[in-house]
Simulated assay, not measured.
Amino acid sequence: MKNIINTLVLLLFFISLNVLSANEIKEEQMEEKIEANNALKTKVSSLNRDVDLLSIKQQKLSDAIEKSRTVQTDINLTASSLVAYIEDAYTTEKPIPIKINQKTNWYIYLLPLITIITIIASTLLSLRTIKIKSHESISALKASNKNLVEINNKSISEEHDRTQKTIIANNRQEWINSLRDEITSFLAVVASTSPSQHLTQMNEAEKKNLWLHSYKIELLINPKEKDHVDLVDKIREEINNLINLKEETLISDIISISQKILKREWDRVRTFEKAS
């Protein structure tokens, strides 16, 4: 009797250690996920700040282009006024007859015209250069904004995938726990029933408890997987054995199938956790 008590104490001690280890591992995983989420938030904030800076630069560039257009308009107006003034001076004022005894110096007459043409050509060339550079700057800015948006969207998508995988893994773990608990409860009820005891001799609470666990297991399994269907068949067969007073028990078969199902589902949960 003392050996049995010592064995039970050691078993409880090992179970407590396993539970504590599982909780510590889960806490470490949660801390790692929280740190990853914080790092992602910091990266997204940095990207948003870069986008704001680029928007400010784009606005300054637009203001400079607008000022250049204003200067171009003023220059064009000045040049037009100057040309109009010269034309008006030649058409309205009467020429003063001057007798020149020396050869005409055409350079004096061509100099203002050459100056005007030079100013207009320089202005047009400058405006064209500004326009080309402005277009290149705007294109580069748009490309940079597009890259930042793509990086941001990719980061958000990856974080969404990791979160979704984590949620799926947690849900599958809860499902595994529920299935294991229901199978354990069902086997406990079956084991507590004597093979020679007829099912109708059980009290209403025991009957209800037996059928309750049986139906819960049927609702938890996947009818498209063969071993899940085999598990339900074994459970129904075990109930029929109790009803028909058969001494044959299928507890070992039910445990074997359950272990295979739970191990496979646990491997799937670990795969999701590694992927996230």
Results as ranks from 00 to 15, higher is better:
Phe272Asn: 08
Phe186Lys: 03
Val51Ser: 11
Ser258Arg: 01
Leu54Arg: 03
Asn147Val: 13
Glu218Ala: 12
Leu77Phe: 06
Val9Trp: 02
Thr163Asn: 07
Glu31Asn: 14
Ile217Glu: 05
Ile5Thr: 06
Leu47His: 06
Lys224Asn: 10
Lys60Asp: 10
Asp63Glu: 09
Ser155His: 04
Leu245His: 07
Glu237Thr: 14
Ile261Met: 06
Asn152Gln: 12
Asn145Cys: 09
Ile100Val: 14
Ile114Phe: 09
His135Asp: 13
Lys234Phe: 08
Ser157Arg: 07
Ile217His: 02
Glu273Asn: 03
Lys33Arg: 15
Ile168Met: 15
Ser185Phe: 05
Ile151Gly: 06
Ser21Glu: 03
Ile167Cys: 08
Ser214Arg: 08
Lys246Ala: 13
Ile114Gln: 10
Gln197Pro: 00
Thr91Cys: 09
Asp267Met: 12
Asn3Arg: 04
Ile167Phe: 05
Ala39Gln: 04
Val51Gly: 07
Leu113Tyr: 08
Ile183Ser: 06
Lys260Glu: 09
Lys207Cys: 01
Leu231Ile: 04
Asn152Asp: 11
Leu12Ser: 08
His135Gly: 14
Asn244Ser: 13
Ile221Pro: 02
Asn105Phe: 00
Asn18Tyr: 01
Arg128Ser: 07
Glu248His: 00
Thr271Leu: 11
Ala143Leu: 15
Pro112Glu: 14
Lys41Cys: 04
Asn23Gln: 12
Ile138Ser: 14
Glu27Thr: 01
Leu187Gly: 11
Leu40Trp: 01
Ala39Gly: 01
Thr7Ile: 05
Ile261Gly: 05
Lys165Arg: 10
Ser62Asn: 11
Ser155Leu: 14
Asp233His: 02
Glu218Asn: 06
His213Leu: 13
Asp161Leu: 14
Asn76Arg: 00
Tyr85Cys: 09
Arg172Cys: 08
Ala169Gln: 00
Lys274Asp: 10
Glu159Thr: 10
Ile4Arg: 09
Met30Gln: 12
Arg268Ser: 15
Pro223Asp: 13
Ile86Val: 11
Asn18His: 02
Lys33Glu: 14
Tyr109Ala: 13
Ser68Phe: 03
Trp106Leu: 15
Ala39Ser: 11
Trp175Glu: 15
Thr129Val: 08
Asn145Met: 07
Ile34Val: 11
Lys224Gln: 05
Ser68Ile: 07
Leu231Lys: 01
Asn241Arg: 04
Leu61Ser: 14
Asn222Ile: 05
Ile251Tyr: 02
Val19Glu: 12
Ile98Thr: 13
Leu231Trp: 01
Tyr109Ser: 13
Leu82Pro: 00
Leu110Thr: 15
Ile5Ala: 10
Ser62Phe: 06
Ser137Ala: 12
Glu93Gln: 02
Ile120Arg: 07
Ile114Met: 12
Ile34Gln: 07
Leu250Gly: 08
Ser155Gly: 11
Pro95Gln: 10
Lys263Asn: 08
Asn101Ser: 09
Ala143Trp: 00
Tyr90Met: 15
Glu28Ile: 04
Thr193Val: 15
Asn147Thr: 11
Arg172His: 06
Ala143His: 05
Met1Gly: 15
Thr78Lys: 05
Arg69Pro: 03
